[in-house]
Amino acid sequence: MASAPFCPLRPGRTAAHKNGMDVQYFIELFFSGLTRGSIYALIALGYTLVYGIIELINFAHGEIYMLGAFTALLVAGVLGIMGFPAGGILVVAALAAIIWSAAYGFTLEKVAYKPLRGAPRLSPLISAIGMSIFLQNYVLLAQTSEYLPFPRLLPDMEFLDYIDNIMGPSDFLILVCSMLAMVALTLFIRYTKMGKAMRATAQNRKMALLLGINADRIISLTFIVGSALAALGGVLIASHMGQVNFSIGFLAGLKAFTAAVLGGIGSIPGAVVGGLVLGIAESFTTGYISGNYEDALAFALLIFILIFRPDGILGKAKVQKV
């Protein structure tokens, strides 16, 4: 699979810094790790929310993220040709991506997972894999197999010049937006009625049903929230990388899943911690060792965690029953 999912350093600042292993380089790597880590965290939240409620690895979640990036690209392209100002385009494109991705996530659940409630555990997983392949090829056939350029929409942020060697406008935007999204999610889950219902359903679906919670509605809501977060991640990374392709979802999805497992699947702070840890670990590996095995690192990490601590950093151990 041809992929250039995340660039470890911003263009133009690789060669000079790679030689010296100074503090500056270290800090730069740390922040670029933080940037990509927060994207992983945004996607990982979707995995963790869904797993928490219906114990399903939503294999097609990476595709939702890709659809978000694609929708943003298309909307931004149309608005750009019509001649709207750059800042406005970014906001509208991001909103469109979030709305459409949420709709895709909702539809995905209704079509591929809802009919399989109560089926043997592997059935929905196979259905999810099928959906992932389907969505990838849907975009491939409807659009193109090539990398499409994402327009440059970010304004220059002058205040960043003071810390210019550490991050650029897109890194800054990613950190701020993902931070805001995570805070908003935490508040939503903790303090709203729907959030409470989500937590109740995650704890015990049957009991929640008995208490008058519409579990189907809560599951749909979970998919919508998770997809919206993934779409936000998709828009941010597309504007950061400057290109979008139908296959970006597969790798990003797997890595985000790794992050979710690393933090303890089902746990919301776990997904954030896992995402950041994975992002920083990858960034240091690329910066100090070699970029070639960057993807292999994530998979190796995933295998190690699942074998030695399957409940992750913040997860709780569960007893398996017949």
Partner: peptide, 26 residues
């Protein structure tokens, strides 16, 4: 992966497959 089952096993084997491919590639 003896201890793993179901969906976790599936993901680990997927990771294994990708590691083999990436090793061959690099």
């Amino acid at each position: 992966v003896l201890r793993l089952r179901g969906d976790y096993l599936a993901i680990v084997t997927l990771g294994f497959g990708e590691i083999v491919r990436l090793t061959l590639l690099n």
